[in-house]
């Protein structure tokens, strides 16, 4: 395998990792601050993609669509938090799983009711379509580069928000001790709605960006949700830094596994069998990674609580 191809695959891994980070960041914040397992996070990702496709089709502008996806997902997140999630904080994790699973079904069938069962059209805006030649002669999709840029920008923004602002202080305090921060006079209900809407907005943005290069259809959120859970388990539940490192690890492991494993098996096996075995093992790679991390660090790489 040539170096150029290897670098291209590293970029691909980085790109898929950063999109996973957008998903995982919201999930880990919600779990860390509110102690809530939100299975419906994938539905917010879907809401973002559908809002982007709908608005882009109506107005002809991808950028309006992207803005709409963030707004729609944040609004959906806030409404769901106030209407449903708020009642779940004090309850058992099993109740939370049950209720948020119900939300998945409601979101999926609601979306089908609004948009129909057929996948929607959403494509890369003309200004970002095509590919560019990077130093070293690597041809790479401009939109994917833009996604990498956007992912990095959001990551930096999120670290500044959590680390340097008043809201960030409240979020971190909320993670450490929920009762104490409420006792200090912080409006904990508003803070929760805010955190939930923020997580939803990030998921919606990821949905719109990923939907643009993949497909916009009902049920698109659930596979990503599973990966996002793997990410936060690896990174340590509640840790933004963990989510970033975990997401990049998962993105790179997944991409490199898919490319390298079949060719490694090809060294000592017949091609057909090697691709089949390699592909099967590649689909397990991230779960093996998760198992290894948990053996070494049961609380995840940056877990606050073991």
């Amino acid at each position: 395998m040539s170096t150029i191809l290897l670098i291209e695959q590293l970029l691909n891994g980085l790109q898929s990792g950063l999109m996973l980070f957008l998903m995982a960041a919201g999930l880990t914040l919600v779990f860390g601050v509110m102690g809530l397992i939100n299975l419906a996070h994938g539905s917010l990702y879907m809401v973002g993609a559908f809002a982007c496709a709908g608005v882009a089709a109506a107005t002809g502008s991808f950028w309006l669509g992207l803005a709409a996806s963030i707004a729609a997902a944040a609004a959906a997140g806030a409404i769901v938090e106030v209407a449903v999630i708020r009642r779940l904080y004090a309850r058992d994790h099993l109740d939370q799983v049950l209720a948020t699973f119900a939300l998945i079904l409601i979101f999926s069938e609601g979306t089908r009711w609004l948009y129909g069962s057929f996948p929607l059209y959403l494509n890369v805006p003309p200004s970002l379509s095509g590919s560019v030649t990077l130093p070293g002669g690597i041809q790479y999709s401009l939109f994917r580069l833009a996604i990498i840029g956007a992912g990095l920008a959001v990551a930096v923004g999120l670290f500044l928000l959590i680390g340097k602002t008043r809201i960030g202080v409240q979020v971190r305090a909320g993670e450490a001790d929920r009762e104490m921060i409420a006792a200090l006079g912080v409006d904990i209900r508003r803070l929760y709605t805010l955190v939930f809407a923020l997580g939803a907005a990030l998921a919606g943005m990821a949905g719109a960006l990923v939907g643009t290069i993949q497909s916009v259809q009902v049920g698109m959120g659930e596979p990503v949700l599973i990966l996002a859970f793997v990410v936060i388990v690896i990174g340590g539940i509640g840790s933004i830094k963990g989510a970033l490192v975990g997401a990049l690890l998962v993105g790179l492991t997944d991409t490199m596994g898919r490319v390298l494993l079949p060719s490694i098996f090809g060294l000592f096996m017949e091609t057909s069998a090697a691709t089949s075995v390699g592909a099967a093992l590649a689909s397990m790679a991230i779960y093996i990674l998760m198992a290894l991390v948990l053996i070494v660090k049961p609380g995840g790489l940056f877990g606050a609580r073991a």
């Binding site: 191809l5 691909n12 898929s16 698109m220 596979p223 898919r258 079949p262 091609t271």
Partner: peptide, 24 residues
């Protein structure tokens, strides 16, 4: 002649890695 045969994951939605292999 088969240049290469690749099995992807069922339900996979990102094909950047495979497309790079095809180009190569």
């Amino acid at each position: 002649e088969v240049a290469n045969e690749v099995y992807t994951q069922l339900g996979q939605t990102d094909y950047a890695a495979e497309i790079a292999q095809i180009r190569d």
